[in-house]
Nucleic acid binder design. Structure first.
Length: 834
RNA sequence: GCCGGAGUGGCGGAAUCGGCAGACGCACGCGACUCAAAAUCGCGCGGAGCUUACCCUCCUUGGGGGUUCAAGUCCCCCCUCCGGCACCA
């Protein structure tokens, strides 16, 4: 009995999915090494935190990434598609505190579980390259990177007002504070004065900004978010002198054209001169009370636009360096200590905020910009005039257009040494210390005689001790381990103390995409030649929630490494796809809402291919996706439909020993069918290329529907059979990147012995697309009124005459004059009547 | 407030360059198969009117205006939703 007769009549994913997963793994068909002749392609999805369970958001991310990787592979690229674990972080510590499981064990168990789920999804990773950021072989190089930054003056320690999350018991970077709340646990963040490690990302502010224009493959949305975050603004820093003490009060402004309109100066309550000014003021107590109130206010309340602007006069005066005028010095709650110089000049006539402040405290308003349109004073309007205009009341600059005046004033200030052109950023340095255990230790030692000493590179990694007592105290638990803390100074050999803070986990994830090039290299973080072969990542796929944090830190690292000569590229990700969320009943799936659809349940009930197909079909990747159980049924039904089609024809297909390639002499039905096959192939190829998975699936469904209609004809002769055979091959190949198991199974059922995933993408036979006859739409006054079938390629004149001859057309235009006729060749004729 | 993105049948969505709106799927309805049900296969499916044969006509892509022979697509104004930023001097 011949083997194919054993083909099951029903699609049984439970049997075939594990079977192929095992074979793929054993044969290592997704293993990759640099290839001399093939073009390279680096497909990457954001590596997950090993929480223990994959959810639908993960599934979507990885289904999209896998489809991209597989499609490129079939198109002749040498594809790097790796996966790893962002394995340091707080949940492991919390699990340890709650359940007494050491973070390393908890993390390892979770990784094992999640890797198993990844494998059950049939994702085409080269698992030999797996990395975990908590592995000493990995974080050795995270620490090495810290040392390189330190060596180049980009890692430094300073005492500063920092964000402290009382729940997480650690400091946070600015990027990790969202509307005053902790990004991770939504607890209100408080300010603490602490000495911490920072990375000087601000040195790269301009490049981070400018390079965005080069990133053609990034969504505009993400680039805009980064631009806003960097917040570059051009202006001048102009120095006001304190009247009695001659202390400098530098002020940053973008409206130096309004300098003659300054009627007061406002300092942030935290400004360093405040102490000096109020020290012997008769109103000292009153002022201190005000400052106390402001600094006690939380960051959210203080920076909320709704918050009332309050201030207090210090009684001191400053001198306007341009006009020589004396103006009062105030302290205001709305002046932020960490932007610009922590002091602002007040121009109530031309800044709405200053205008309101001046009204409240009865400060003078002095108009220095006249609106070009109207001459009446703005006092009557009750608002500041913030637009450009003509300068007035500005001796030496009167009559100038304010934009021109800006330059003139900046030049004047620079020539007199009272101010200089300056660029300010909202971006601040990246705070990377964390007072927690489960992270990469900072490779620094403090010595009484040598000070801050970097650990020599040959002593890396500084390993994290594994048995640790957990008490969340706000101090790193590493403090309690004398063997860890007490060390010899690497410089002088004297007694020294190790830094006990660990690094922000975003540090670990800012370079993992490079490590994948050489995941097991021991003497170097990577081999430059290999890394330069693979990088940059050609297509990066992940959630938009990382638009700023992870994506900007990674760009910063890549630029830095480029500057060191360790990488050729200075941008890590050439193309970025940010996939939408998976929703249930319109809401994000979350534990608290209890609306999570677990992957495990999906895999058990429908299998990996159905889950993947539904997720890709239901919505375009960037858009949010509403989870719909009935939609999943539909996806499953489609796969069964393909299964039955192949089942029905596998005898015929196998009986042709080789693929029929002679397609001459087809009758018209066969030709139409074949045209549909190649037209679909063309469409699906384009769709996958632009990541339009939903339309690619829809197109394939349409083709399968047509093939069902063609079934009876397919049995009428060898030519028809050959068309069906080619069609089924094409369908399986087109779907292989999306649903790898069923296509592999059927590929073997129709007589192939090699893997479908090592096949080449099919080629469109352009000759099959040629249509001799075509339908032309006839419009009268823009409305479709008739259609005609004609030979393709007729000229406009012919189409026009033919259209006007039609009964239907003559009937409609009988008593009217034809004013004009528009012809789109091979498409439509529009007859316009008077 | 500012900056993005979106708004299309009962639902998810399609229309890639200004040229037939509603592909494909879900749901629903009808038919075939069946003792029956499920599954499957086939057909129908935006709304209204007119015919209740086929046809035909009108309306319809958040609302209003415009450009054009022709607009879901381009321009102007407005509404709603989502995301980001938000006293940044």
């Amino acid at each position: 009995m011949r083997r194919w007769l054993h083909m099951k009549d029903k699609y049984n994913f439970k049997e075939l999915e594990p079977k192929w997963q095992k074979i793929w793994e054993e044969k290592g068909i997704y293993h990759v090494t640099p290839h001399e002749t093939k073009p390279k392609y680096y497909a990457l999805e954001m590596f997950p935190y090993p929480s223990g369970k994959l959810h639908m958001g993960h599934t979507r991310n990885y289904a999209i990434g896998d489809a991209i990787a597989r499609f490129r592979r079939m198109n002749g690229y040498c594809v790097l598609h790796p996966m790893g674990w962002d394995a340091f972080g707080l949940p492991a510590e919390n699990a340890a505190i709650e359940r007494g499981i050491p973070p390393s064990d908890w993390t390892r168990t979770n990784i094992d579980q999640m890797r198993h789920q990844f494998q059950r999804l049939g994702l085409s990773y080269d698992w030999r390259r797996e990395v975990a950021s908590c592995h000493p072989g990995y974080y050795k190089w995270t620490q090495w990177l810290f040392l390189q930054l330190f060596k180049h003056g980009l890692a430094y320690r300073k005492k500063a007002q920092v964000n402290w999350c009382p729940a997480c018991q650690t400091v946070l970077a600015n990027e990790q504070v969202v509307q005053g709340l902790c990004d991770r646990c939504d607890t209100e963040v408080i300010k603490k004065e602490l000495e911490q490690w920072f990375f000087k990302i601000t040195d790269y502010a301009d490049r981070l900004l400018e390079n965005l224009d080069k990133l053609q493959g990034w969504p505009e949305k993400v680039k805009t978010m980064q631009r806003n975050w960097i917040g570059r603004s051009e202006g001048v820093e102009v120095v006001f002198k304190l009247k009695d003490t001659c202390d400098d009060i530098p002020v940053f402004t973008t409206r130096h054209d309004t300098i003659f309109g300054v009627t007061y100066v406002v300092l942030a309550p935290e400004h360093h001169l405040v102490e000096k000014i109020i020290a012997d003021s008769p109103r000292e107590q009153e002022i201190r009370r005000f400052i106390g109130e402001v600094t006690r206010t939380s960051e959210i309340d203080r920076t909320s636009e709704l918050a009332e602007k309050t201030g207090i006069s210090t009684g001191a005066y400053a001198i306007n360096p341009m006009s020589g005028q004396e103006i009062p010095v105030w302290i205001g709650n709305y002046v932020l200590p960490h932007y610009g110089t922590g002091a602002v000049m007040g121009v109530p006539a031309h800044d709405q905020r200053d205008f309101e402040f001046s009204k409240k405290y009865d400060l003078p308003v002095k108009r220095v910009i006249a609106s070009p349109n109207q001459n009446e004073g703005m006092e009557a309007i009750g608002a500041a005039y913030e637009d450009a205009g003509i300068m007035v009341n500005s001796p030496g600059f009167d009559g100038m257009e304010s934009e021109v005046g800006k330059d003139a004033i900046a030049d004047f200030m620079e020539s007199r040494g009272i101010g200089k052109r300056t660029i300010n950023y909202k971006l601040r340095d990246w705070l990377i210390s964390r007072q927690r255990y489960w992270g990469a230790p900072i490779p620094i030692v403090y010595c009484d005689s040598c000070g801050t000493v970097p650990v020599p590179e040959d002593q890396l990694p500084i390993e994290l001790p594994l048995d640790v007592e957990f008490r969340p105290t706000g101090q790193s638990p590493l403090n309690d381990i004398p063997e860890f803390v007490n060390v010899e100074c690497p410089k002088c050999g004297g007694t020294a103390r190790r830094e006990t803070d660990t690094m922000d986990t975003f540090m670990c994830s800012s370079w993992y995409f490079i490590r994948f090039a050489c995941p097991r290299m021991e003497d170097k973080p990577w081999d430059p030649e290999t890394a330069n072969y693979w990088l940059p990542v050609d297509q990066y796929t992940g959630g938009v929630e990382h638009a700023i944090l992870h994506l900007m830190y990674s760009r910063f690292f890549t630029m830095f490494l480029h500057d060191l000569g360790l990488l050729e590229t200075d941008e890590p990700f050439a193309h970025l796809l940010t996939q939408g969320m998976v929703l249930k009943e319109g809401a994000k799936m979350s534990k608290s809402k209890g609306n999570i659809v677990g992957l495990q349940e999906m895999l058990d009930a429908y299998g990996a291919d159905t889950a993947r197909l539904f997720i890709l079909f239901a919505s375009p990747p960037e858009r949010d996706l509403e989870w719909n159980e009935q939609g999943v049924e539909g996806a499953s039904r489609f796969l069964s439909r393909i299964w039955r089609l192949v089942y029905e024809f596998q005898g015929e297909i196998r009986s042709c020993d080789s693929l029929q390639t002679d397609m001459s002499g087809l009758n018209s039905q066969e030709r139409d069918m074949r045209r549909k096959v190649h037209a679909t192939l063309k469409k699906v190829t384009q769709d996958l290329d632009r990541h339009s998975f939903n339309t690619a699936v829809a197109g394939t469904m349409e083709l399968v529907n047509s093939l069902y209609q063609f079934r009876d004809i397919a049995r009428t002769g060898t030519k028809a059979r050959a068309v069906m055979q080619e069609a089924i091959h094409t369908v399986l190949l087109m779907l292989a990147p999306l649903v790898p198991h069923i296509t592999e199974e059927l590929w073997h059922e129709i007589g192939h012995s090699g893997s479908i995933h090592q096949e080449s993408w099919p080629t469109v036979d352009e000759s099959a697309l040629v249509e001799t006859e075509i339908e032309i739409v006839i419009q009268v006054n823009g409305k479709v009124r008739d259609r005609m079938r004609l030979q393709k390629g007729r000229d406009s004149e012919y189409l026009k005459t033919e259209a006007l001859k039609r009964d239907r057309v003559m009937e409609l235009i009988q008593d009217k004059n034809v004013r004009d006729v528009f012809v789109v060749p091979d498409r439509l004729v529009n007859i316009v009547t008077a």
